[in-house]
């Protein structure tokens, strides 16, 4: 018997995509994201300056044709630092969000599906992490572990999972009562398959949305920590680290580009990703038409 496998345009992904492209703000966000990421990736094509090269002869220049956004107090080109810094900032945001959401989703699945003691323990840990001020916990951890990009990613991952864990756990709690799950259990299909093959795909929408929002959140967290001097090491240009150079009041006044430009980059990126995330949420929500 030959049965042709038909690919029909009513699959869930296609339907969501059609919903997404009707949302103008979401498309705007997507375009913003693509432009910023492309500019950061294409940094060597857009500028000839090395973002870390210290040149005392050109300290504190105002924007000019050679230095589009001027230079900082060590003579580094700000435009180059923002492009290269975007690479680090976005990478930190994306990897930290992925780490925290993968961990949170897995823990949420286990807590929601198995319930009982496992659930109580995981929920308690989650609550303890949630009631602690996030910035404080990050600062303490950095203080103990030392400044490095790897440490920062680890800290974001291990302190960032409670949010998504709550979302996934809640969804799993209601989904596991569904007849299609009971039908699996009646057939003796194992917990791992039920959790990760049957239940998790049904929570993918909220996880994806949460992840995109988290990318923005982690970029802001990184910027905040770096501004306080507790983020990434000084030699790594990130958007937060660039602003860190503008801590003194006289610099804030005399070199406005030093903080205005990276702040604008952060704002634009976070705004774009939030519009994009909102659009995704509406598109992936099966109850919205």
């Amino acid at each position: 018997m030959t049965i042709r496998k038909k690919t029909r345009n009513t699959s869930l992904a296609k339907r969501s995509w059609q919903k997404f492209i009707q949302n103008r703000m979401a498309i705007l966000g997507l375009i913003g994201l693509v432009l910023i990421i492309a500019a950061c990736l294409a940094a060597p094509l857009l500028t000839n300056y090395d973002p870390t090269l210290i040149d005392p002869s050109i300290r504190g220049l105002s924007p000019s044709r050679e230095h589009l956004l001027g230079t900082d107090r060590l003579g580094r080109d700000i435009f180059a630092r923002i492009l290269y810094g975007g690479r680090w900032s976005i990478m930190i945001g994306v990897i930290a969000a992925m780490g925290a959401n993968l961990l949170g989703a897995a823990l949420g699945c286990i807590a929601g599906y198995y319930g009982g003691k496992v659930d109580s323990v995981l929920v308690s840990i989650q609550e303890m992490l949630s009631i602690f001020p996030g910035t404080l916990i990050n600062m303490l951890c950095i203080g103990f572990m030392g400044k490095s990009v790897r440490n920062l990613l680890l800290i974001f991952t291990f302190t960032g999972w409670p949010g998504v864990m709550r979302i996934v756990r809640g969804r799993i709690l209601s989904l596991k009562q569904e007849p299609y799950v009971e039908s699996c259990r009646a057939n003796g299909i194992g917990g791992m398959s039920i959790m990760f093959h049957h239940l998790l795909p049904n929570t993918l929408g909220p996880i994806i949305v949460n992840s995109t929002m988290n990318v923005a959140g982690y970029i802001l967290s990184e910027a905040a920590l770096s501004y306080l001097g507790l983020g990434v090491p000084d030699n790594v240009p990130t958007w937060g680290n660039i602003i860190n150079a503008a801590k003194r009041l006289d610099i804030v006044q005399t070199l406005p580009m030093l903080w205005l430009a990276p702040a604008a980059a952060i704002c634009l990126f976070v705004l774009s990703i939030n519009f994009f995330g909102d659009g995704l949420r509406d598109a992936l929500d099966p109850s919205s038409k």
């Binding site: 869930l12 569904e178 007849p179 299609y180 795909p201 049904n202």
Partner: peptide, 11 residues
């Protein structure tokens, strides 16, 4: 099961 809408996994 009773509910044909919830008896099959939508994904």
């Amino acid at each position: 099961f009773q509910d044909p809408y919830a008896s099959l996994n939508p994904v």
